[in-house]
């Protein structure tokens, strides 16, 4: 029954329509006969995972694979190259240093170009410097590049021209010091998203990335420098490869189901290829230090392996964002656990 009356004085006891309760008729109407024995009860025994027509929860990553995976790869290559170049410069390996300085400049330019190319509004790329947002790895990265880019540039240009050697040396060392930051800020960049297979790997991802960067830079050194000067490059490549492979393996093991995309589909294939190339390249680096050809081939394998890693990571991210289970299941488990721990579900019943 309506609890509001139309009295001679007017409507009394009105309540706004938003307070309507569907399914309360049996109660409100006082019609006990018709009352169902139960009303709601726990519905179907809860399935492991439910979703909205299998639609992803997250919006798909809008980045283009060549652009952004390329950006990750080239940035890593540049950063590690700068560091390696600085070492080469300090230890008197000019050919190696020069090659790596060029690589760094080329890499970072390519990386930037890829980033700008990927922007929806490339003309507005300078807006990256409109604010400094410590909460945004991309913002931090942009500012980092503002510092690093000119250093890498100066290092390469002075190296090529022989002009301003002292400035050149300072720039080389500066770039070398900034290099690791450049090589690894992209790990928080991708991990600082809701993409499950990225975010969940945030602890290991920087190691994967620097490992991969080191392998690439080492590979580049092997490819570009005479074998006599390339020993640090080979060692860097081996260290990097080992680090990358170990970190990636550990990451996958720790992430549980959200690691699946690293094993399946395009992401998985790329990761497997990356691993093979990297390990082959590392083996080549270990064995082939006499042969320029083998060295170069190994270097190329390492570079390709590093690129594959970034593409693999990229596609794994895309795959995990596209599947609702990677979002729902871990969160649901977390909730269940919290509920079991007695914290209850916020607002739940």
């Amino acid at each position: 029954m309506n609890t509001s009356d139309v009295t001679k004085q007017g409507v009394r006891g009105a309540r706004p329509g938003r307070e309507a309760v569907t399914g309360s008729a049996a109660v409100a109407g006082g019609d006990r006969r018709g009352r169902r024995r139960r009303g709601e009860r726990a519905v179907v025994p809860e399935a492991e995972f439910r979703s909205y027509y299998g639609k992803p929860i997250l919006n798909q990553i809008v980045w283009q694979a060549p652009d952004i995976a390329g950006y990750l790869f080239l940035g890593g290559l540049a950063g590690a190259s700068s560091t390696l170049a600085a070492g080469a410069e300090l230890t008197g390996r000019p050919a190696l240093a020069r090659a790596l300085k060029y690589t760094a400049l080329g890499g970072i330019s390519g990386s930037l170009a890829a980033l700008v190319h990927d922007l929806g509004r490339p003309a507005r790329f300078l807006n990256m410097l409109r604010v400094f947002r410590p909460t945004s790895p991309m913002s931090v990265g942009s500012w980092l590049l503002v510092g690093y880019g000119p250093l890498a540039g100066a290092a390469a240009v002075t190296g090529a021209t022989g002009l301003f050697p002292r400035i050149g040396r300072a720039a080389t060392l500066g770039a070398g010091l900034a290099g690791p930051a450049v090589a690894c800020y992209t790990a928080p960049l991708v991990c600082d998203t809701a993409v499950p297979s990225w975010h969940e790997g945030y602890r290991e991802m920087p190691f994967v990335f620097v490992g991969s960067a080191a392998a690439a830079a080492g590979g580049m050194g092997m490819l570009a420098a005479p074998v006599e000067q390339a020993a640090p490059a080979r060692r860097t490549a081996v260290i990097g490869s080992v680090l990358e492979t170990a970190a990636a393996t550990y990451m996958e093991r720790r992430m549980g189901m959200v690691a699946e995309p690293y094993r399946q589909g395009r992401g998985g294939a790329l990761m497997r290829v990356a691993k093979a190339l990297t390990l082959a390249g590392a083996a080549g680096a270990l064995l082939g230090h006499r042969s320029r050809a083998l060295s170069a081939a190994s270097g190329a394998a390492l570079l390709a392996g590093s690129a594959c890693t970034r593409f693999g990571v990229f596609w794994a991210g895309v795959q995990s964002a596209g599947e609702p289970k990677y979002t729902v299941v871990p969160q649901r488990r977390r909730l269940e656990k919290r509920r079991a721990d007695g914290h209850g579900e916020p607002g739940g019943s």
Partner: peptide, 30 residues
Amino acid sequence: EVYGLPPDPVVTTRDLPSMWTYAGAAALTL
């Protein structure tokens, strides 16, 4: 999740300090 909403979303930047820490360690490793 039945409505297409995440059951227990966490803002990704909550882990950012930790990310930077790991990244820093990785940079030093490099």
